[in-house]
Design a protein around this nucleic acid. Structure first.
Lengths: 244, 244
DNA sequence: AATCAAACTTGACTGACATTCATTTTTGCG
DNA sequence: CGCAAAAATGAATGTCAGTCAAGTTTGATT
């Protein structure tokens, strides 16, 4: 929804990648994970919130189209309808903006998953469902494809935004005797990087589509349940996310 | 061996990162994975081999010092003692050069591991030992630290250069009834990305040093042996690699 | 040894940005 | 309305990655 413009690809694409950047400074504080519009004080604050959101949105659009590196700050600024210099009032650097975009994306997905799984009774199944949804999204959603190329950033954003949920689930399932995880953050770190790696390989056709299913199984193996139980867990019914 | 010069860090470091690059063309063919100096025909060919090696060496030195993005082509060319333009006769682009550097590094390590493990009798143990060695190197060797920031490239190089060995071991161990792996390339893809991710997190102090041990265990879990067997395998005696 | 074309080198130059900063505009307030 | 502080702006700066026209080297041929 909302990908209307920029139908094909600008034919004028210059295959650029990885420029150099300087050490930046900036002013405006304030986070805003986009979920929670609990009335913002003051007109300025509101405009800033709007600008920030517009920038993230514009960046998301352009970056997921041409890739993070090929996106230029000026076009992002223009699409967000602010001056080129203004971007730096909101984000320290291009990379910082990219991180914001990715975290935004991840947080949205985390919430979507949370909404479905909070009715589940088996903590293990919650984790399994989360894994599968993330991989499916990463390989299926066009908007993610280009972003996968910066895997550390992607995996990091995934770690931070979905981590609280994932780690909670890993620990719950362990308490319930379902999993055997001693260091949940470690397992989740490994999972995020593996997911991004596999997603990248699948979208590049280095791995077949079918690897996704098996990937979920292997990620479940990492939780210390055996292969058989992992297979069982992975193949259980899974409710559908209300498709994006 | 041979890291003599550049003792500390140039204090003049400019924190740069990710420039833009164009689509390149180039001429000279020829690989040369550095292992196998089987007499190269002709003076030209020899000079080219020397240049290529010098470039990879220079790039390795500088990139592992300032990071891949912050390294500039000119300084690499200068250190390798060739003209700035010459680099492009050997490598299509900066990224291409970086890939060559990483693959070189990986191949060396793969051979080192191979040399030790080809006396092992248990295929599972070979894989386990390989995993541990890679993680130890990635987190311990200073020269690797900076390179981890481009995780996709790193993981990719690892996949390609060590993959033949790793996949062979996974399959052998499976045939021997030791592991239960149906799709070895997938498992190895997941492993490489997870390894790089964990190494990155450890060198960044986001994960404790102790995570390394547990990481090996969890990677072994992915092979379909249970947690207990994984623990057992991970804790077995491991011969030392003749230290770098 | 002299000649020549092909194969290589070279480094000055170009085009592209990311980021900065002097100015201008907007706000909030007395 | 008048001001100082906070924000926005876009022209200007600095830094490369990658190109290319001109200069060298090579080895084959005479």
């Amino acid at each position: 929804m909302g990908l209307s413009e920029v139908n094909g690809f600008a034919v004028t694409i210059l295959l650029r990648a990885r420029p150099k950047m300087n050490i930046p400074q900036f002013r405006i504080e304030g986070k805003m994970t986009s979920e929670n519009p609990p009335v913002i004080e003051g007109r300025v604050a509101r405009r800033q919130a709007r600008n920030r959101a517009a920038l993230i949105d514009a960046a998301r659009l352009i970056m997921s189209q041409k890739g993070i590196d090929a996106a230029t700050m000026s076009e992002i600024a223009e699409l967000a309808d602010v001056g080129a210099g203004t971007v730096y009032n909101y984000f320290k650097s291009k990379d910082d903006l990219a991180v914001a975009v990715l975290e935004h994306l991840m947080f949205e997905l985390a919430l979507k998953i949370e909404k479905v799984t909070n009715t589940f009774t088996d903590a293990g199944q919650v984790y399994a469902f989360g894994l599968r949804t993330v991989i499916d999204t990463a390989t299926g959603d066009l908007r993610w494809r280009q972003l996968l190329n910066r895997s550390e950033v992607m995996a990091n954003a995934m770690f931070r935004q979905m981590g609280p949920f994932a780690i909670r689930d890993l620990e719950n399932a362990t308490k319930a005797g379902r999993f055997r995880v001693t260091d949940a953050p470690l397992v989740w770190t490994m999972a995020t990087h593996a997911i991004v790696g596999v997603a990248l390989a699948v979208t590049t056709d280095e791995l077949p589509q079918s690897a996704i299913e098996e990937c979920v199984v292997r990620l479940l193996c990492m939780t210390g349940i055996g292969l058989d139980e992992a297979l069982d867990l992975a193949h259980r019914d899974r409710p559908d996310l209300a498709a994006q």
